[in-house]
Amino acid sequence: MEALTAKNVTKRYTQHTALDDVSISIPEKSIYGLLGPNGAGKTTLIRIINQIIDSDSGEISIFNEKLNPKHIGTIGYLPEERGLYKKLKVGEQLLYLAQLKGMTKAEALEKLKVWLTKFEIKDWWNKKVEDLSKGMAQKVQFVSTVLHEPKLIILDEPFSGFDPINAQLITNEILELREKGSTIIFSTHRMETVEALCDHIALINKSKKILEGPKKQVKDAYKTNTFLVEHIGNNFTLPADKYDLLEQYKIEDNYHHSTIRIRGADSPNQLIRDLVDVTEVHNFVEKIPTMSEIFITLVKEDPSL
């Protein structure tokens, strides 16, 4: 089942189009990376999903149900711009936010106990938010996002402002939530995060979706049949009609590195055979593009630019 599908969603403002005919589909229990440069329209899409604003056209379904106010409790949203009531105590604040999401006070209290114990922040209950450090406030905010056990969690740049220890803590929580059946949408332009956590991605640029799919597939699609070879000696040539030697440099003494692209439909094995004849191969690996490379390539190549 799809946790969320968006069909032909368009949102126009007087001066510009924020989303232009965007369709995505997010499989249940996936960690879905919503990528794109600043101003691409990610936040607009997220706001539409959160029913903060309406789309001009298009349709959004959550678990095969047309998006409606009932879904407020289904979604947990951590916006990029974090914020809590500064003068309010942690406990009151979390209770209030949970009640706004539709939980009863008793429910919220019970769940809060579990989370606060887990995050070791139980004794913050009566602290005002303004007295907390930034990292502490982030923890509180994360708890408020997931407290009502949303089936769809939307995290906008979740790691900004976290120190590595807290970032790890949150990462583990995210993975655990996925295990328990939640679907997670990451909106980010931090490619390490995407690389490490996401299994599906979509790339939005200039209000349009330009790429979507499982991460593996996307990466495979952007493989360039290029191989990284480490070998002894460099006085050899490969048939120029079959291979491009993109780069070659010395690592040490007579130990060299070459980046070689296969031009035709030859298999990597053929390249190895050809190499073995002329040099002593020590390392042979396919060059898989990083998400960052794909991102940059696509955004730069985008014809609308």
């Binding site: 959160n50 029913q51 903060i52 407020i72 979604i75 949203y77 916006p79 711009e81 974090r82 914020g83 809590l84 009531y85 500064k86 936010l97 706004l100 999401k101 539709g102 905010q141 408020s144």
Partner: peptide
């Protein structure tokens, strides 16, 4: 203004109508 500058407002409006 306080809600706006403390950025809480986006969290709130994802739960209730403005």
């Amino acid at each position: 203004i306080e809600e706006k500058t403390s950025k809480i407002v986006e969290v709130i409006v994802s739960s209730v109508k403005p």
